[in-house]
Every structure is written in C-alpha cells, then in structure tokens.
Design a protein around this nucleic acid. Sequence first.
RNA 1: GGGGAGAUGACCGAGCGGCUGAAGGUGCUCGUCUUGAAAACGAGUAGGCGCCCGAAAGCGCCUCGUGGGUUCGAAUCCCACUCUCCCCGCCA
Length: 425
Amino acid sequence: MLELRQIRQDPEGIRRGIASKGEPGAEEALQAAISRDAEWRASLTELERMRAEQNSVSATIGRGVRGGNPRPEQRTELKELSQRIKGLEERVRGLEAELHEALLRVPNLPSSHVPVGRSEADNVVVRRWGEPPQFRVPPKPHWDIGRDLGLLDFERAGKISGARFSIFRGAGAALERALPTFMLKLHIERHGCVEILPPFLVNSESMLGTGNLPKFGEDAFQLRGHDLWLVPTAEVPVTNLYRDEILPPEALPIRHVAFTPCWRSEAGAAGRDTRGLIRQHQFDKVELVHFVKPEDSTAHLAEIVQDAEDVLQALGLPYQVVQMCTADLGFSQANKLDLEVWMPSYGRYVEISSCSNYTDFQARRANIRFRRSPNAQPEFVHTLNGSALAVGRCLAAVLENGQDEQGRIHLPEPLADILGQKLLS
RNA sequence: GGGGAGAUGACCGAGCGGCUGAAGGUGCUCGUCUUGAAAACGAGUAGGCGCCCGAAAGCGCCUCGUGGGUUCGAAUCCCACUCUCCCCGCCA
C-alpha cells in the first residue's frame, strides 16, 4: 500500500511509476483512489463538525442533569442530530471502504535505480559464477535421471494427486531433506538468521498483508469452508509475524529463515515446464525474511542475494544474478534480483531464487512499525525476502550438473556429508 | 464436542452510563542529587485521521478484542463473532 499523502502530493509521479510496471488495472485503481479520497475527506470534515456539536451539547446536558437542571428540549434536538450523524456515518464508511479497496489494488513503486523495461528481455545480467559443465554425450534431464535411479516418481504422483505433484523416493527423498538441512545450517550459523517454523495455513488477513490478496487469490489454494489458505511461500506467515506491532529500537534488523512447503495453483502456466521438478503445485523452499530500518533496505537486499549465492557456491552450481527491469517486478516489489542456476536439460539458466525489496509497502498493509528511540514516533519498517533456495529446483540442478557418462551422480560435498555417500548410482 | 472464566495503553492493573483517552504501578526518556552507579526526588511517556501539500503550532474526530444495537451521551448496558485460559470427553 502506498502512502495516501504521497498520492495526493504527486499523483502524476505515482502514475508514471506504477505505469512502468505494466500491471493491469493499476492506473484505474490509482484514479479510483484519488477521486474516492476527495469525496471521503469532504464528507468526513462535515461528519466531524456534526460530532463536535453533538459532543459539546451532550456535555452541557450532562452537567445540567448533575446539577438537577435537565433541558428536555435539547434532547429532541440532539436526537435528530444523532439520526443525521448516523446517516452521514454510513456514507463516510462506504467511501472509506471504497478508498481502501482501491488503495489495496495500487502496486508498489519501483526503486529509482531499477532499469525501466517492457519485458523480461530488458532484464540485466549482473554477474555470473562458475562454468556450465561440458558433456561428451548429451546430458539427461533430471526427470530421466530421477526415474532411472529410482529417486523421483512422477507417474505415481499423478495417480494419487495429479499433474504437477512429485514423489521423492529413497536417496531422492533423503536429498530433498538434506538440501534444506544444509541451507538452514548455513543461514543460521553464518548469516545470523533466527529460524521460524510457521503454520502452513494462513488466514486472509495475512495474505492481504503481503499483497497476495485481494488481486492474486487465484494463484493460491484456499480451503473450502474455512478462511484459510495454503501458504504460497513462507514469506506470507513470516512477514506477518509482527503484524500490528511496534518493534522496539533494538529489535532491528531482524533476520529470519524458514523452511516450508509452498503451494501454488500455477493458474495461467498451463503447458509451461510440464516435466520434472521445475513447476509444481507443491514444492519445498528455504526463505529468508528481513525486517529493517528504511535506510538499510538497499544494503539488506544485497545481503540476501549474497546469502543465496553462498548456497549455490557451496554446492558448486553455476549461476547468474539478474537485475529485474520494471516490467518484471511483482505487484508488491520495489526491486528484485533473481538467481538463475545452470540447467543442462534446458541448456540455459533457470530461476532458482528471487530476492526482493518491498520497502514499506507490505509494512503499511500489515501495519509493522518500529521506534528509532524509546519515545520516538513509530515508523514503518522495510521488509525484504529471498529464496535461498527453492529446494526442488536445486535438487534438479544437483542431479543434472552432477551427472557423468555412466549415469551416476556426483554429490557436492555438503550433501555427501549429510547423506554419507558421494555417489548416487 | 460439552461446561465455565476472561480480553483495558510497551507491561501489570483500576474503572457508579456523563470533565475517564482512561486512576495506580512497572518499564522507558530527561533532569536534580552523586566521583560514578544504585537509591531517592521531579518532569515526561498511546495510536490513527481530518482541517492543510509538507513541517511546526493549533482546533477537532475516532480508538478500551471485532462488528452491530440501546441512549442526548457507552470502556461501562444488550446481541453476535473472534481469540485466550480452566475443567470434562475424544484424539496424533
């Protein structure tokens, strides 16, 4: 949510900013917010004037009653005023609701240094690490490797759940556990994170706080008969941890790491990445979430990217870091960098992590504030998060990049240590 | 699932339908005292919004779990809901 005052002050600047994201409906939402705001304020001023009169006359009646001197005619006047106030209250409430609804549909502004672009073609590769492995025979895709070594079973997953579900088997299951185990240990011991293991079901209020509602409800799974959603990412429960709280000065920065399954409907992705672990309705992910002072969020985005890179480097997986252009920023995001891992079956880099700065957009929606000093006015925090990493895609990358001509998999040292074997065959 | 109790500020905790946005305490901030600290003493200390584009000052409105209702007037009375705690039953 943007600040209303900022919208009043510079509507044209805001319009340009959100237009650069190409978010459908954004400019209409902004227009609606601006016009509702004007009507709302006019009505509110009138309502407050009437309430002030009611309060002051009511107080004199109170004094009269206690002095044994009631004035019955004032009561009938006030009864009428009270009725008029009720009518106007209803109108103000309605306008306020419409204003709020419109505001919730206005996306976050891009940070000033984000390159303006019209599509993902305008994203910028910032750096690359590692060399894509060379194969003398064509490398196998991970779904074939998984089937041949008995690690993955997509056919039976289809039977018991449907398309875009997976079954991990034997060493495959062990790997799916070993990866987050390794990642969590790194983030906790080296990156200063405190682990959170949140509920996997959250209410609508939480989805609203992170910006997944009201616009993107169709991307998530909702439980029938309950106000509960399957978390699309740990970002939702963890960002909402401090909703409606004022954090004390010493609390920031807060660094959390959470390992959860994630559920996504993948509506609109029909036909894309239909094979393998790349695009699933359920997948595991290790997520970093930071709460920081506004002036620190740029530095913390870089830190989160680095934390995610540390995982890839420890696993020896070649990757590139990509700065997203304005068109590729999500609804709530002010800036975003993706990490893309080399995927031999795709013959290109594939997204494995997405690190974003939400500035005060989520904090304003979720009402997450802090004080700089014990008696200072509360300010909104900045929230950031990044995957470090998506576990399924990481498993796919480990299998594909680690394969040899005999169809064996050479495991990176951190995983070999946990599994107690260096080679899968 | 059945029965009972409760929800007030950063925290604890008072609160006859009308000078109660809220006593008292704790914590915190500043000051006095002290070589320094502690103690003692003094002062301060909720949030949101409008008038007004921002800041300051001022004026006003709202907020005692949430939403309705009664009333000239509700933290206080009534209804519904949510959440917390206790007892019984069931259960991983």
